[in-house]
Write a protein that binds this DNA or RNA. Sequence first.
DNA 1: AAATATTTTTAGACTACTCTAAAAATAGTA
DNA 2: TACTATTTTTAGAGTAGTCTAAAAATATTT
Lengths: 220, 220
Amino acid sequence: MYSTTEENYLKTIYKLQIQLGTFINTNAIADGVNTKAASVTDMMKKLSEKKLLSYEKYKGVKLTEKGKMVAIETLRKHRLWETFLHNQLGFTWDAVHDIAEQLEHIQSNELVEKLDAFLGFPTHDPHGDPIPGRNGVIKESDFILLSLLKKGEKGVISGVVNHSSLFLQHLEKNKLTLGKSITITEVSSFDLSVKALLDGKEKIQLSNEVVKNILIKKLI
Amino acid sequence: MYSTTEENYLKTIYKLQIQLGTFINTNAIADGVNTKAASVTDMMKKLSEKKLLSYEKYKGVKLTEKGKMVAIETLRKHRLWETFLHNQLGFTWDAVHDIAEQLEHIQSNELVEKLDAFLGFPTHDPHGDPIPGRNGVIKESDFILLSLLKKGEKGVISGVVNHSSLFLQHLEKNKLTLGKSITITEVSSFDLSVKALLDGKEKIQLSNEVVKNILIKKLI
DNA sequence: AAATATTTTTAGACTACTCTAAAAATAGTA
DNA sequence: TACTATTTTTAGAGTAGTCTAAAAATATTT
């Protein structure tokens, strides 16, 4: 239906829209799809022709409902594949993204649905990002930043803000994986680093850089 | 490393080489990759440049060792994915091919190896075709045509010769799937159709068109 | 508001792959 | 062997996507 390239543009614009809320400018898109501004302009004309987004010269773009659906469907496929790669094949947290980038463009509705069922209809991918449903609905999650927890409070690791390999590898090396519980025992007022209890037993220390990039589900 | 298109050309030429044994001519390739002869000529020059095959004008082509390895690796991926689609996701026999055509081009050695392990290092795909090993070695199978069985002889369905959807759907509808046993009870000398026992209990009748396209492992 | 900096668009060209139509080579036949 | 048919190759052009360099529009600074 749509080419790999088109899907990548739409997905990138969708993410930028969520992040920035407004009309998306050419350079941001060029950055996102790893190309030059001139190429973006060309593609914007093409996607606009196809009614996937509205484009006005020098004013940026905005996805149409149709474009948004394509973007979400691509995101759904990406996150289902990431889940498969991590949960079934045992890929590490940081390795799944690049392969899922390729797999998300495989065309077959039946495949997506069967994969979803095979995985047990997961609601979140290995990074804690919500997996859109078949209808395109994305469930809002009530995850908050670990850095918001106060001394004595407790939460379960449920996602990350920073998706870089470097950060994910760091987390994996320190056993800070999805599902682990964290109880804050002390917050330094100097550098905002925290001391905490991992899974109620192991004492750990986390820099602010780390805690402000981890999402947790707060336990009362 | 190599583009989807290049891999498809190499895979097609490899299959033709096995089938025909000799130098492969332009039209046969054009047929196999669904394009025109002129396009094939262009591509042969390109693949020849890259030392993936040897090409002499008007004389046809032959894969080099390098080209053969790429073809076999692609075939390996194709058949592993077919196995995944059938065994894990529950796709029917005839539906797996088209999706595997796409999946075989995903680039990641780690993915192939992990998938192989996940599937339990299968030796044959859902059509009974052998899956090349990591080293590129393809185990010869001792399957023979069902049509070669004589009255009273018995075998286990292990593969197909004809891979068309129509034939595969026909087999599936008649429960003639991999692993089922067949005992020949009668062979008509008129139309070469056979009467047989499916799994030792159900009486069935099969046309010659069917029996000459089924591969079985003969039981003594 | 003018000058400067930045962003975006246009123009023209390149790569990978494709095609049609015509020319060249090979194969088959009388 | 000469004629015809078939196959293959060349030539020229198209599509999707990309790029650089220059022009045009917008934003920022003074």
